[in-house]
């Protein structure tokens, strides 16, 4: 066990855990932020996507000891009131069905739009292919990302 000081959603958090504990379980079990989801544990489904220093990271494969000074942002910290342009677009397009994968989808989408504010359809499809949605909401996810890009750039 070891103590780690983490910066999560702009706040400082201290946890005493096994250094190999993946960030996913630190967030869910120790910090009480359960918006980041467990899907596969091997970085294949994207449900656990968070940002570390603004970049999309699969938290199930990120041991807590590697985070260091990195600023972690989870779905809970994406905006104060749930009004980030991507979250708003998700609500407008009524994207979720079961909703379980959507936090990861939104975190991947926001990271994409940060790097590429005006992605083409093909760029969206490629960038979002690491996030599985068993309900099949891909067409709506694409529409929401395009709408968020438009609103963001307006």
């Amino acid at each position: 066990m070891a103590v780690f000081k983490l910066k999560i959603n702009g706040k400082s958090r201290e946890v005493d855990v096994d250094p190999f504990t993946p960030l996913l379980w630190v967030l869910r079990d120790h910090v009480g932020l359960v918006g980041t989801k467990f899907g596969c544990g091997i970085a294949q489904c994207g449900a656990c996507t968070v940002h570390v220093d603004g970049k999309a990271v699969r938290s199930c494969q990120m041991p807590v000891q590697l985070i260091g000074e990195g600023e972690v942002t989870t779905i809970e910290g994406l905006s104060e009131e749930g009004d980030h342009p991507v979250q708003k677009a998700w609500l407008e397009q009524d994207v979720p069905q079961c909703g379980y994968c959507q936090a990861g989808q939104i975190m991947s989408a926001t990271a994409l739009l940060k790097e590429n504010p005006n992605p083409t359809d093909e760029e969206i499809e490629t960038a979002m292919s690491g996030n599985i949605c068993r309900c099949g909401t891909y067409t709506r996810i694409k529409r929401a990302i395009k709408s968020a890009a438009q609103n963001q750039n307006a």
Binding site: L33, F38, L91, D94, P96
Partner: peptide, 22 residues
């Protein structure tokens, strides 16, 4: 058309699922 009543909770990561129970 009426949007999902849990939509806001889903996109802000509120505890909704069995796995989220603590």
């Amino acid at each position: 058309p009426r949007v999902n009543v849990d939509g806001k909770k889903i996109v802000t990561g509120k505890p909704l699922y069995g796995l989220d129970i603590q």
